[in-house]
Amino acid sequence: MKNISKYFFILILAISPGVKAQEAETLVFRQNVSLGYDVSGFARKLIEPEVFMHGISAGFEWRPNWTASLELGTLGIDVQRDSHQYLASGFFVRSGVNYNLLQKTSMPGEELFVSFRYGFGSLAHEAPNISIIDPYWGSLETSLDPARYSAHWAEIGGGLKTRLFWNIYIGWDLRIRLKLARSSDIEMEPYYISGFGKGKNNSVVMLHYSVYYKFPFGK
């Protein structure tokens, strides 16, 4: 019941009213740089407190509607139970481009974009204590030695971005990731791959929610 109340409060905050109108403006393209932070890791932490992922992004819109993007982040997992322990930590890098499908003159500050990325994630994981209990055959006590793991993937997605106020933007995007290569000869697939998603899957769908600050400059 306590958790339901917490999530209902968050839901009320999330469904906020629309903002006031803004007059159309005459637009001149300016190259700009944006820095963003992916807050979806906090949402995941509400559900899985032992798993924390966060990422930052940098974007450079070098020509109208085209933005080059670089994303960096980390993953941390710390599961401590009487019957099992699992620890993991890692980082990821994703790079690619976004293309804005909306014409800037018609809806300034709004973006409906498609995204393409190439990603790489690396992590170390271990399980100092594993207990598997079978009601018929008995229990197995074992452990997983520290091991490194890495993977490469490609992703495609789409999303929305809109200006909140000043140069602050918020947005979400949905991405489909396809694993291209991974470490071989491993004892166990990691629970999560940094920047990718669940380790046992060859493809995943992930929703991201970010806050951005845009620095306008240039001609």
């Binding site: 839901l11 629309g18 803004q22 979806s40 909140l164």
Partner: peptide, 21 residues
């Protein structure tokens, strides 16, 4: 004139929270 995308952004966030739960 309303800005439609901002409500969609917040709605998507709320829906994703519900789905995660």
């Amino acid at each position: 004139m309303r800005r439609p995308l901002i409500s969609q952004v917040f709605s998507a966030f709320a829906i994703s929270i519900l789905l995660l739960i």
